[in-house]
Write a protein that binds this DNA or RNA. Structure first.
Length: 554
RNA sequence: GCCGGAGUAGCUCAGGUGGUUAGAGCGUCGGAAUCAUAAUCCGCAGGUCGGGGGUUCAAGUCCCUCCUCCGGUACCA
């Protein structure tokens, strides 16, 4: 059980960077586990909100806009709305999916900065940087290329030489030039505000030492950073595209994306409650110690959520710190990593047009990269859909409904007479499975949760086989009624237990059962929820088979 | 280079603090059943756990070393 002292749960998925279409890697890493988690929590009656959005500022978007000859605003509009729609099509149940280009975010992140500034925590430091006079901008390290001073590789990046692996500074490069325009930059001084991360190391380590339930990879990763000593970090940039620094003398600078973006979780929470007409309610979620804050994300941004953002919040002082970071590894595609630039990725917007979104969700959840990188295979989608969703779950619901139609006129048959041991056994399994599945969800074990749920569907099929209603109907209709009643209760349970991973199918099943989907409760999964003589609707096929031709050439 | 993670049946993956014959699903093969989208249920076979070395009565699990892959490496996010 979730610890009692938490009154509400605040769940975030890593903001999606709005310079590309969201792909299955994002879903597997930070979106689907969070969505399943919040769907489970809602069913169990917890007070939970689920926050996400687009991350829309920073160097990379400015560069994309130059490359595509568009304005940054055009870039983020294109991807923000496309990704928002894609998530909806996949059934992701954000309470809000907003954007960091919003006014409310600008205000919130500026206030955050100002508070740290007023507390005297920030300091200015001047540094030499490369400046392109042609482009009128300072160049970010990785947007400078030049010759590596160690191995003479001519295309080395300003932050690292990909040829010899040496960590570089752009000023070390021989013959540096802008990656975008090829312009030869000049060295120029610029001052930036620094966040004193080093001062927070002890506090962070103490805080993290209480997090023994965190995943080992997250804790070890942070220990590595602590071991080498945290360094202060520049939190402003010389960019045009970003949240302006809220100080008169520094209007030409913007806040560093990784300072401002996580504040987006707060801004979006504000926006959510403001839209509901309750302007101050966000404070309950962000400023009460009885809020459980959970960040879902991929391994690539552990450091920002486990170290940098918590340090910012500590510095600010008013906010709750994260309770857990169930970071996932990556989901690759057919053996190699997904990459936008190489065109090797499955975009959500494309895949939801071709296949049942629940089949996609189920396939990803079943192979979620909880412990190590995993691979998505089209053949796996086909196999999961055909052999599990259609053959086990779909078939059980179908055979139950067809039978109810044929022999009981689509009415829930009465429970006349006593349950036999075999009935009691499946009903008690229903309870124990519901509990173990719940425990898996609460402990972020989504793969286990899903496979356990499917195992229960296998048990249901076994019950149907073992009780042989097709034989019993010939000589004992009352007994057969008890069996089919039980099977129908199981169908209702599946609508609840599968809801976190198969939300669309869950609703379809409830419609077939002529039951409301608005007040589903986890605990009803092991109650006798369907009344005798309750009228059912005509059955529909839940999952159609995916044929070989459909996954060829994908 | 440095820090962290991973390498387990044909395939995809599980395997706190070392301990009986290393697990699951899929696939394969065999059987039962025929209400059901030829859908179900039962069973057999199949790995010595990336390579090498070590500690131990006992190692997939701890230590050393090597190889391969992934993430981070503080101005990409």
């Amino acid at each position: 059980m979730i610890k009692k002292h938490y009154k509400r749960i605040l769940v975030t998925s890593a903001l999606t960077y709005a310079n590309g279409y969201t792909h299955l890697g994002h879903i597997a890493g930070s979106i689907l586990p969070a969505d399943m988690y919040v769907r489970y929590l809602r069913l169990s009656g917890y007070d939970v909100i689920y926050i996400c959005g687009s991350d829309e500022y920073g160097t990379a978007i400015e560069m994309t806009s130059i490359q595509e000859s568009k304005t940054p605003q055009e870039i983020i509009d294109k991807y923000h709305f496309a990704n928002k729609l894609a998530y909806e099509a996949l059934g992701v149940s954000f309470d809000i999916y907003s954007r960091t280009s919003s006014e409310i975010h600008k205000k919130t992140s500026q206030e955050f900065f100002k508070k740290l500034y007023d507390k005297g925590l920030l300091y200015l430091k001047s540094e030499k940087q490369l400046y392109s006079e042609q482009e009128g901008r300072f160049l970010a390290d990785r947007f400078v290329i030049g010759t590596c001073p160690h191995c003479r590789y001519e295309e080395a990046r300003g932050d690292e030489c990909e040829s010899c692996g040496t960590t570089l500074s752009p000023l070390e490069l021989i013959d540096p030039r802008s990656k975008i325009t090829g312009d030869r930059p000049v060295v120029k001084e610029s001052s930036h505000f620094y966040f004193p991360l080093s001062k927070f190391q002890t506090k962070l380590e103490e805080w993290m030492s209480t997090k023994s339930n965190w995943k080992a990879n997250v804790l070890n990763y942070c220990k590595g950073w602590f071991k080498s000593g945290l360094r202060d970090r520049a939190i402003t940039r010389d960019l045009k595209w970003g949240v302006p620094v809220p100080l008169e003398d520094y209007r030409d600078k913007v806040l560093y994306v990784w300072f401002e973006a996580p504040i987006g979780y707060i801004s979006n929470t504000k926006e959510y409650f403001a839209s509901k007409g309750d302007t101050d309610k966000w404070k309950e979620y962000w400023m009460s110690s009885d809020t459980k804050l959970v960040h879902f994300l991929g391994k690539d941004n552990i450091v920002f959520h486990a170290i940098f953002f918590p340090a910012m919040l500590m510095a600010h002082g008013d906010f709750v710190l994260v309770d857990n970071i169930p970071a996932n590894e990556f989901m690759n595609l057919e053996g190699s990593k997904q990459s936008k630039s190489k065109g090797h990725a499955i975009y959500v917007k494309d895949v939801v047009e071709k296949f049942n979104p629940d089949s996609i969700r189920y396939t990803i959840a079943s192979n979620m990269p909880e412990n190590k990188d995993t691979d998505f295979y089209w053949e796996d989608l086909q196999a999961r859909n055909n052999n599990e969703l259609a053959a086990i779950l779909g078939n059980f619901v179908n055979r139950t409904f067809i039978f109810s139609d044929k022999y009981f006129d689509l009415m829930v048959p009465p429970l006349s007479g006593e349950y036999q041991p075999i009935d009691k056994e499946i009903l008690s399994k229903l309870k124990s499975y519901s509990e173990s599945i719940a425990s898996y969800y609460e402990n972020y074990k989504f793969k286990d949760a899903v496979s356990e749920t499917m195992n229960l569907a296998r048990e249901a099929n076994k019950y149907f086989n073992d009780t042989e209603p097709w034989n019993v109907i010939k000589h004992d209709k009352q007994r057969c009624g008890v069996i089919i009643n039980t099977c129908l209760q199981l169908c209702y349970s599946f609508a609840i237990l599968f809801n976190p991973v198969l939300p669309f199918t869950s609703m379809k099943m409830l419609k077939m059962m002529n039951m409301s989907g608005s007040d589903l409760k986890w605990s009803d999964a092991y109650a006798v929820a369907l009344k005798e003589d309750h009228r059912l609707n005509k059955p529909e096929i839940l999952f159609s088979k995916i044929e070989n031709e459909e996954i060829k050439n994908l």
